[in-house]
């Protein structure tokens, strides 16, 4: 993995529904500047949006005082979005095992959940999480840059 960072940008938002759209707008501008033809832009935006929503809701419990920290890292062979919250974290692999499915499979559920994680896993090539005092979800989008970055 070529892990030298060619470009980096960070955003911090309050844990309030709708704030994630500010990041999506800025992320769109940045990614289109780096690569005018972003074939996976919609997928990146959806995955980032869902990671932010999970961070606000499950990590920071919609406490506006608590920030969600979003970092964009562009590397040779991938684009990475890191979304960090102040929560205790969760085992997203286990959650996915218990929730991923289609609507038909969840008809008997009173309030079917898990769609956000499902969308993230579909849109990103790698979804992983870590906890080091703060909970962080990483979304990896592979083979996007080929070493070309407009500065």
């Amino acid at each position: 993995m070529g892990d030298s960072v060619l470009f980096r940008e960070e955003w911090i938002i309050e844990s309030e529904l709708g704030r994630e759209k500010q990041v999506l707008e800025q992320l769109t501008c940045t990614l289109l500047h780096i690569h005018p033809q972003q074939s996976r832009l919609d997928a990146i935006l959806t995955a980032t949006s869902e990671a932010c929503l999970n961070a606000m809701e499950h990590g920071n419990l919609f406490n506006r005082e608590l920030p969600v920290h979003i970092t964009l890292l562009v590397q040779d062979d991938r684009t990475i979005i890191k979304v960090q919250d102040e929560g205790n974290g969760a085992n997203i692999g286990q959650i996915a095992e218990n929730t991923v499915g289609k609507v038909r499979d969840k008809l008997h559920w009173e309030n079917p959940r898990g769609w956000g994680l499902q969308l993230m896993q579909h849109c990103a090539d790698i979804v992983r999480s870590s906890w080091n005092g703060k909970f962080c979800v990483e979304l990896h989008f592979l083979n996007m840059n080929n070493g070309v970055v407009n500065q």
Binding site: K21, L24, T46, S49, E50, L53, V103, L107, N111, P112, R113, W115, G116, Q118, L119
Partner: peptide, 16 residues
């Protein structure tokens, strides 16, 4: 222009 998982969950409730 924008649909997220919470919006999809509402559409699912309507669909059901």
């Amino acid at each position: 222009p924008y649909i997220n998982s919470a919006g999809i969950a509402i559409l699912i409730r309507i669909a059901q």
